[in-house]
Computed example of a mutant assay.
Amino acid sequence: MPLWQWVVDVVAVLLVLLVLYGVALVVRRRVLSRDGGTFELSYRARSSTTGRGWVLGLGRYAGEELEWFRIFSLSPRPGRVWKRSALAFDGRRDPVGHEELALYADHVIVVLSDGRDELELALGPGSLMGFQSWLESAPPGTDWDRDRPR
């Protein structure tokens, strides 16, 4: 078989794999959002460099937890999970510099603490309102001081 036929075969296989990956991402997003409650949520994984370290993803409420999924991953499991009782709202800010390019348009950065570290999430204005409502609400009879960072 001539070399050019090998090259064509390899390119065809790579294109098929790329299309299958794209289809798998669409199916995964549909499966994650089938119960509702998903929204665009970016997470700052590395905060060592100013304006860098953002990872695009999806957020989903699961009872008392907020689950975060990487947008370009095929894993059905969340990459991070935060418990509502451990999160404390510390403020919000607008993206600056490189963050404006790295994040979705019109997203706002929310600064939270989880008892150990400072945490930054970026979400849209509508999702922010829902997130703040979810964060402040709790089932009746909840002990507000339990598991809260002091």
Rank of each mutant, 00 (worst) to 15 (best):
L103P: 06
R116T: 01
D106L: 03
V23L: 14
G63F: 07
E65A: 02
T49E: 09
V31W: 12
L25D: 13
Y43S: 07
G63R: 01
D117S: 13
P149Q: 08
V31R: 11
D143I: 08
Y104C: 08
G53P: 00
L66I: 04
L112D: 10
L56R: 15
Y61A: 00
R80D: 02
L15W: 14
L123H: 10
D90C: 12
P140L: 02
E136H: 04
G59Y: 08
A24P: 12
P125V: 04
V8F: 14
A105S: 09
G79I: 02
V27P: 10
S127P: 09
Q5N: 09
R116S: 06
L14A: 15
D106H: 01
S127V: 02
W68V: 03
D94T: 03
V26K: 14
E99C: 06
D35A: 08
G91D: 06
G79Q: 04
P95N: 00
I109Y: 04
V11G: 05
K83H: 08
G130A: 06
L74R: 07
R44Y: 00
G79V: 02
R146F: 08
F69R: 02
M1V: 03
M129S: 13
W4Y: 12
V26T: 14
Y21P: 07
H98P: 05
T49H: 10
D145R: 14
L74Y: 03
E67A: 05
G57Y: 12
D114L: 05
T142L: 09
S33Q: 08
E136N: 11
F72S: 04
D147Q: 03
M129C: 08
G79F: 00
W144E: 14
D114M: 06
L14I: 12
R148V: 06
D143N: 15
G126A: 14
V19R: 10
L17M: 15
Y61T: 04
V10I: 15
Y21D: 12
G115N: 07
S48C: 00
L119E: 09
D147C: 07
V96I: 01
F72Q: 06
E136Y: 09
L41N: 05
D117H: 13
E118C: 04
M129R: 15
E99T: 00
R44A: 07
P125L: 12
S47I: 03
E100M: 06
I71P: 02
G51F: 11
R52P: 03
W82Q: 01
I109G: 09
V96M: 12
R92N: 04
W144I: 07
T49I: 12
